[in-house]
Amino acid sequence: MPEVVLATQGLTRHFGGLAAVSGVSLEAHMGQLHAVIGPNGAGKSTLINMLSGDLPPTSGRVAINGCDVTGLAAHQISRMGVGRSYQKTNVFLAFTAFENCRLAAQSRRKTSMQFFRPAVNLTEVNRSAEEALAAAGLDGRAGSVASALSHGEQRQLEIAMTLATRPKLLLLDEPLAGMGAEESASMVALLKKLVETHAILLVEHDMDAVFELADRLTVMVDGQVLASGAPAAIRANAEVQEAYLGESHE
């Protein structure tokens, strides 16, 4: 059995009286891609926000590498080897692609409370940034300002920044959103490569991509887990068919 990188138990989040996520328990393993699917409003983004520390859970526990990280702040969780990407592209638009990744890589230093040494001279950080750009297929665009990149390239940059923080666990929130067929294909290829060296939790709407990539699938409806298992089993699950797959697969 591959190493368990992420494990949650009964993760729950209420907004006022409304339960956006309730009682979600799941795991992510090294070298495997665990996809979370479900209709809009199923609580997938809330789930990721709790895993990354952007949102504290109302109850339940999150463990990374066996350590309880429930309630830790986003920056602390990031430093435990968790990298996340956002549904809406969330890069520093005014910076170059390289500087986006350089800053991300700089976060892995013990501290950035260094005041007198030029940041561009941190060779280790520069190398990390270059590697991350290359891994995400952006090595040709290092000098371009992020706002000048195409939508697909910005999505790649989003992943590259995450990689530059050298995470073990990747939390990817709809990396294929808004992409054309060609861009999607290259992103799928990238994810296939990344899963070899990472544990990935993927939230995605593109069912073809999900079934191509996932080693394990969790279906969420109304904040709860409807079914969880191997892709083939999920595809055959009548309940899932009815609740979700049937409608979205016209």
Binding site: D54, Q76, N90, V91, S107, T165
Partner: peptide
């Protein structure tokens, strides 16, 4: 530019 993103990159802002 984006404080929330800096936090999720691991910076105690």
């Amino acid at each position: 530019a984006n404080e929330a993103r800096m936090r999720s990159l691991g910076f105690p802002t």
